[in-house]
Every structure is written in structure tokens, then in C-alpha cells.
Write a protein that binds this DNA or RNA. Structure first.
Lengths: 169, 169
DNA sequence: GAAAATATGTCAACATTGCTGACGTAATTG
DNA sequence: CAATTACGTCAGCAATGTTGACATATTTTC
């Protein structure tokens, strides 16, 4: 009676994917754990990592753009950004065109740490790929992208450099 | 001069997998975001979710076992567990054999919420699978498992019910 | 050029969820 | 009965998120 569908009502009665849910949880925990351990030696946390990462990936980023990526408040960002600047991992300069903007750049020290962190996490991906055959990387890419909110995918694709932001073209 | 390896030294000079690193970050954020919104309506956070989830999955779990899964301190656990019990989402009974143990069970209300949360997250997986072909689920499983620390995989496999804990066999 | 809007910084207070350390109590074990 | 085990609890601290209010510099607009 409930519904006309005998097999499964769009997934309301079907069994949850407990395995994937739990695997995603453990996989992500181990993934960030790699970075956590290195960050600790600098007195930094995950929040610092995220800021350092995106600044290193997009030198010249402004505060507003960074806030938009991280989706936190300026107060939260400022707390960690201040430390990163104080410890000379990041530099802020007045915007080239609009001097109200602050453009963020990693210093040599900051670039090094950002790269080391990325390489740590890359190592985990690389080890995972070894057990997954030659197409593992593409499949991981496709799976992860498919897990992102559909209306966020465009922005994410731009971020990771897979899409031209339609500038001059 | 740097090293003898011209192609790439085990991945020390190779380009980091920035795309996967960032995709994993955004995918996981959206994944937990689904649950966050529902939890908020109950005044619960992610910590409550994890406790409710594992108790619902393994009724009769003891405090020590739960601590071992979550890898947090008993004080952290107790804080959220106390609320879940107070609000009647979880029940704690003295252990059957050893009365020092507390065995945890979800109430009807707790089971319902746990299932709703799992279904929300399952929906995201299911939508992702639609774009990935028939083998998407297995590939996602394999990828996620491969991302887990190798020495943790056995435990995780048991948790998700893919491995007999070698009891009577 | 004065006024309004924009980009950012900062202060204060609070919530969630980790942590450590110390101590208490009930139940079991030796 | 003493020691161990399993758990609960109190107190305090840290990281990182939040709101709200207000200051300052710069650019835009009328």
C-alpha cells in the first residue's frame, strides 16, 4: 500500500550503504591524520593547513575569495591567518588594482610546508592506486567529484584547474 | 645533481595530486553536511552522530569498545553520550555477564534518527553512483578501503561486517 | 569633494568537541 | 579482602567554529 513501487521506493526502504558510510569516515580520518602529524611539529592545526594550502595553490588570493572557498567567518580565518603571517609562512600585500584588497602569498618557507603536506597526502593516494589498477586515479577522481554537491561542482572544477574561468575566450 | 633518479624519486619530485586532495576535502565536507543539517534540528553535533551511528550498528556495544572505535577519550565520549541518554536516543544497561560493563542500545527514537541519517548519506552515494556505471559501488568501496591505513583495514572490515571475527570457526 | 559602499581588522563572548589529570565507585578477580 | 577493571565525573585547557559590534582604509558614486 505504501507506494506503487515493489522493489524499493527511491531508496526510502532500501538498506543504507553502511559500508561506504563507514569507509568514507575512516578513509578521511586517516587522510587528514597524515597532515595532522606534520602540522603539529609547527604548532599548526587543520585550519592553518587549509589556509596555507589554498593560498599556495592560488597565489594572490584575496581574503574574500579565501573566505568563499573555506566557508568560515572572517574572524575564524583571521585568527589562523594572523599566525601564519606572524610566523612568516604567508605574506599579505595590498591589492594591485584595489588597495583595499589584501593579496595573499606563501613565502618560501610556506611553499615548502604546503608542498610537504600535499606530498604526504599524495603518497596515500599513490599507495591506494597501486592496488586499484591503471584506471584507479580516474575512477577516484570521478567518484569524489560525483560526491560533491552538483551545484558546487563547477566551482570545484575551477579550483582544481579543470575548467577555464571564461576570461578572454 | 640532486639525485640519481631522472624520472621521479619515488614521488618526492613528482607533482602532488592536488585535484584528488581538494576533491576529497570538498566531497567529505558535503557528505557530512547532509547529516549536520538534520542533526541541528535535534540540537546534536557530529560527535553525537558518530556515537548514535555505531551504537545503532552494533547494539550491545560497551563503552570500551566504542572508545576504541572512535579513538577519543572517555570524557569526550561521556559528554555526548550523557545527552543522548538524557534525551532517550540511547539506553545503557549493565552488562549481561560482567555488570561493570555498560551495554549501549538505541531506543526506537534513536534507531529512527540513526536510520534517517544513514539514508541521507546513502542518498548522496546513490546519486553519485548513477553517474558512475554499474560497477561504481564496488570501485568506490575499493578506493575508500585502499585509503584506510593498511594496519587498520582488518578492523574496519570487521566493523562493516565483511569479515568473521574468527569466533567458533 | 562629501557621502556611501566595500574590504578588511579586531574585540568580546560563546559553543562544540577534542585533550589531560585527578579522583570516586561498583563489580569482578585473585 | 585486596587489587584490578570498567566506568563516571570534576576541573581546566586548546582548537576552531559562531554572532555581533565597531574601527579603518580605500574606492565609488553622486
Amino acid at each position: 500500500m505504501k507506494s506503487a513501487a515493489p522493489a524499493q521506493a527511491s531508496r526510502d526502504e532500501a538498506a543504507p550503504f553502511y559500508d561506504l558510510i563507514e569507509l568514507f569516515f575512516f578513509a578521511y580520518r586517516d587522510f587528514v591524520g597524515d597532515a595532522d602529524r606534520l602540522l603539529e611539529t609547527y604548532g599548526f592545526g587543520r585550519a592553518h593547513h587549509r589556509v596555507l594550502h589554498f593560498v599556495s595553490r592560488q597565489p594572490g588570493l584575496t581574503i574574500a575569495e579565501l573566505l568563499d572557498i573555506l566557508k568560515i567567518t572572517k574572524q575564524s580565518l583571521n585568527r589562523v591567518l594572523k599566525e601564519l603571517v606572524a610566523k612568516s609562512f604567508i605574506e599579505a600585500r595590498a591589492g594591485a588594482q584595489d588597495r583595499r584588497h589584501r593579496q595573499l602569498f606563501t613565502t618560501a618557507k610556506g611553499s615548502r610546508l604546503a608542498r610537504d603536506l600535499a606530498l604526504l597526502q599524495t603518497k596515500r593516494f599513490a599507495r591506494a592506486m597501486e592496488g586499484l589498477g591503471p584506471e584507479g586515479r580516474e575512477r577516484a577522481f570521478d567518484f569524489l567529484l560525483a560526491m560533491v554537491d552538483p551545484h558546487e561542482r563547477g566551482r570545484v572544477m575551477e579550483l582544481i584547474g579543470m575548467k577555464n574561468p571564461e576570461r578572454g575566450a
